[in-house]
Design a protein around this nucleic acid. Structure first.
Lengths: 234, 234
DNA sequence: TATATTTTTATGTCTATACATAAAAGCAGG
DNA sequence: CCTGCTTTTATGTATAGACATAAAAATATA
């Protein structure tokens, strides 16, 4: 039944504890028994109970403090954890056909607003790209991207007609920091045309910036076709 | 220096491993040494190395499979983890003043579209609420909420003039499942008026549905004032 | 040769024990 | 009563060793 002998695994303990929290047997703000007491109750060891409680705390159900003990969080700050997907993967996983197309590619001086966003010191040049991502041959996402040339010189040798900049960067360049933001924007004529939308349509927009140890690498704006919805369940 | 004797802690090991991944000493798709070999290198134990690698896998950097070993993920599917905040908390944490106001409160029969969304069997009545959330006395969010009366009978005894339904529910009712989705919608006249926006403005919108063990509890639509941006860094 | 079976192996987990450490609680001395 | 020191205690982490298990690799069988 259970794993080792016949005792409860840390997963079993997580289940039981979570159940008690959800049934309010252990009410919000109340203190749980100590690990030793719980280990005793479940005829397990402190190590195993520790793992169960530690993970439940990471998941946002409990708060733990040395000496103070383990407390049930009143407002479960449940952490919506969702993976930032690569466009292509997202489309393929939905069982649709992915197609990519490069719209524009040019090397330009870094715009001042971008320089400010990225906190690049001196003036640099960037590779500017516009691309389209299709799902079943209908417009899915319009991507506008800036790649800092100094951080990714090999980008200049890539024409990006076959591979999208997102996928290329993931393969070629490591990054250490990432900032993602989501917002709603209004389709201007340019974007509307690509996304087969009407001028003024509300567009779900993602912005991503990545750095490699304080050195800015790339900034992207992803405009999704009208009707797009980002969903997580937990 | 380190915690116990002078060996590396699991955190130290995580740091070193992550560094090697980011510096591509261990390239994407390559296989890491086994836990035993690493434990040897770091003069630690397999248990400690295991924890380090396990956590890095959870964070999306590694993929682990029994017998097959531990592999560096090519496209770091880095998991954007952000807490689903309570509106009030979000505003207060930004150092602004929070104000709440009830707009409408009525008990109605469950609309058929909602019945479908929630997968409620029989016809039920719901408590329908419209509320406003202000930050520094400027409109921040317009909330439209349906609470399934059978799941939360005590909601009928609450007038929601002092406390917002989100906060009230978090205190009163546990839930087991949550679905959140984000999208861009267009402000209609009603919404635009409350948010001090223009008709047709793009509105960042969140939808939340919660269940308690297959029993639907509530559904909410949160319309944010123009310019709102949801950001995470990782 | 193709397929079933066995072996091997890396990760997954549990146990028992020890030491580390933050912070609450108790206790002193003023 | 307050302030600073000491004790206690619950969690945090490391260790050594064992068994569990999925799946790759090797081997046997049809």
């Amino acid at each position: 039944m259970a794993t080792q002998r016949d005792n409860m695994s840390y997963k079993d303990i997580k289940r039981v504890v979570l159940d008690r929290i959800q049934k309010r047997i252990w009410a919000p703000d109340s203190l749980l028994p100590s690990e030793i007491e719980l280990a005793d109750e479940f005829s397990s060891t402190r190590t195993t109970v520790n793992r169960a409680l530690r993970e439940l705390a990471e998941e946002g159900f409990l708060e733990r403090k040395r000496k103070a003990g383990t407390r049930v969080l009143n407002a479960p700050l449940r952490k919506a954890q969702f993976t930032i997907p690569q466009v292509g993967d997202e489309i393929v996983e939905a069982g649709r056909t992915y197609r990519y197309s490069l719209v524009k590619r040019e090397v330009i001086d870094i715009p001042s607003w971008l320089s400010a966003t990225l906190a690049t010191g001196s003036a640099q040049s960037v590779l500017y790209l516009e691309c389209m991502h299709f799902a079943d041959n209908t417009p899915f996402q319009f991507e506008v991207r800036w790649i800092v040339v100094d951080s990714a010189p090999s980008a200049l040798d890539t024409d990006f007609t076959q591979i999208g900049p997102g996928a290329w960067l993931a393969q070629e360049l490591p990054f250490t920091d990432l900032e993602v933001s989501f917002s709603a924007s209004k389709a201007d004529k340019h974007i509307a045309e690509f996304l087969d939308a009407r001028d003024g349509d509300p567009i779900f927009t993602t912005q991503r910036t990545t750095w490699l140890r304080a050195q800015p690498v790339t900034h992207a704006r992803l405009y999704f076709a009208p009707g797009y919805k980002m969903t997580t369940r937990l």
